[in-house]
Design a protein around this nucleic acid. Sequence first.
DNA 1: CTGAAAGCGCTTACAG
DNA 2: CTGAAAGCGCTTACAG
Lengths: 361, 361
Amino acid sequence: MTAEGGTPHGHGDPTTEPTTPAHRPTADRTTSRDVARAAGVSQATVSLVLGDKWRGRVSERTADSVRALARELGYRPNLAARNLRLGRTRTALLVVPALTNEFFARVHAGAAHAAAEHSVGVVLYPSPDGIGPARDPFDSARAAVDGIIASSMAANALATLRGGGLPLVMLDSDPLRSDAAATVNLDIADGMRRTAEHLLALGHRRFAHIAAGIDSWTFHVRAEALATAVHQAPDATLRTEPTALGVTEGRAAAERALSGPGPRPTALVCDDDLIAAGACKAARRLGLRVPDDLSITGFDDLSLATALEPELTTVRLPAAAVGEAGIRALIAVLDGRAPEPTELPGELVVRDSTAPPPADR
Amino acid sequence: MTAEGGTPHGHGDPTTEPTTPAHRPTADRTTSRDVARAAGVSQATVSLVLGDKWRGRVSERTADSVRALARELGYRPNLAARNLRLGRTRTALLVVPALTNEFFARVHAGAAHAAAEHSVGVVLYPSPDGIGPARDPFDSARAAVDGIIASSMAANALATLRGGGLPLVMLDSDPLRSDAAATVNLDIADGMRRTAEHLLALGHRRFAHIAAGIDSWTFHVRAEALATAVHQAPDATLRTEPTALGVTEGRAAAERALSGPGPRPTALVCDDDLIAAGACKAARRLGLRVPDDLSITGFDDLSLATALEPELTTVRLPAAAVGEAGIRALIAVLDGRAPEPTELPGELVVRDSTAPPPADR
DNA sequence: CTGAAAGCGCTTACAG
DNA sequence: CTGAAAGCGCTTACAG
């Protein structure tokens, strides 16, 4: 298996070009040596010119001719060779629970964007089991990387990641309990607090938390912040209904919350927008109007939030900014600089899925 | 910038270990040489044992000790060196228009899954401009790859991709006009035909196509197939309203289609689920009930399709299977085998957004 | 059963 | 202003 597949060798002019040795694993790709030969200069000169380090060391004329020949011959530097020589790859591994979740797709987009600005590559490793530890990111991604950025990983997923001895940047993870080289935090607690205060101000007192049943920092914080904020109102009640992430699962959990014993909650606080979408469906099934009979909030502000009707009140999380900050922090670490600790705010976006509870109308 | 950041060197035992040369770009990572030295064997033996090619060539005892030492020292092979030596990377570059579109996230998931089974890595390159040509995927992704898989690219995006001289597999693209090494097709036309026939059978005659205004094969086919199928009914009419991909954009286009001159269409055929979600919002704004007053169909069957109310009638595209087939085709090409041409079917999923037109009720 | 050697393609001191 | 040489860490014939 070579890069060019089964194509037979087809050397240039065998009379001017010395015969290559029999063992030739990399097929017929143009190398810097080929360019050097064509230009009548040394390999070093080619490297200097193409690496833009030639000023004052190579004549303008030579540089021009090298560049022309390189283009003509379709020369592309062999990255494996460069990486080996340089001892670094300028590539970061981004580990996320699942890319089909738009939040992580945005984190990736932000990371890729920031990385491109610094001529750094991003290799993605979506943890196969949704959340949870990748068995071996190094084996599976197979990429040579300089460092790792991991987002929103479950608590027990860290060990595997630290195995490589590579610098690790944690995103949306416990800033205290991490031995990461840097962290990028989201002020999740503040977002949840604002949500609760918004609902309390509307008059809600009976809350249900449709909570992602995932053992990760980001969801623990949501639960705690919600409980703390709700109980500021002495007469407020809060029950919790755990669910997997997803519309169907969220619907089932919301149905349980709405049809359980005791007085029905008037506000469903959901741990993300997918769950909230499910909660909206549950409400409709039970004949409850949103927001007239029931208020529902989400988290993340995915595109789903405005695709729904009514549009979701939710906490906007700057996912792309998280990815960008992650890359910047990693680059700082790799450059031996101290990364500036980052905490990104969320923003409560009030839309049409929240209103005063029915009793108050 | 080294892999370990600013940490100072900290060699093992300097009395037993010869001093390393001054220039040491790759910090203090354990190499196969270190393992060999520790085990008292040659580097070759380490390579053989760890590459599982030792049977009959190295004693069981030696192999065991090498493995133990490798683990103990935390040895990880330098991929750059291996890639250079082998002349291949076992890595594929996946180029998609935008990862925040769930369809492509699923294509990636399928590709990553199939790739992992074959110990192949996938590096992702989301085209920055949404659709359209990546400026230079090789520079930006910076990964050394053996081949490229590109999905649903605009017609003019191909040239850049072929620049590398690497084998190219095209997904969801024109099977005829491609000089790719292999293609994986989706039977888009059939899906659109079934959609039209479903609506015709319900009694619809006035159609509007809310069409993605993107110059790519996949959308051209949708337009053609719809027009052909609709015009099987001699009294059917079809107007087209172009839009960018997205909920907001789809809503605006649907509003234009619904409030244009002439009799109002009774069915809105949308080029994807996001546009359809926008169309649903447009209907509600105009006081039209879906599906009683207006039928709406989508394409893709994203999770959005069932998050909406009513749930969307749409064409399910096997996105993950597309990604898987892409990887398999690329591996076949790289191995010098002829890839089996693949055409994956779509499936019309009838849900609650389509019904007979109001006149027939 | 094991080791010494070559070489993948690149970049960077170093010598002229 | 330019070239010859070394070496990154690996794998694979090849020689014993």
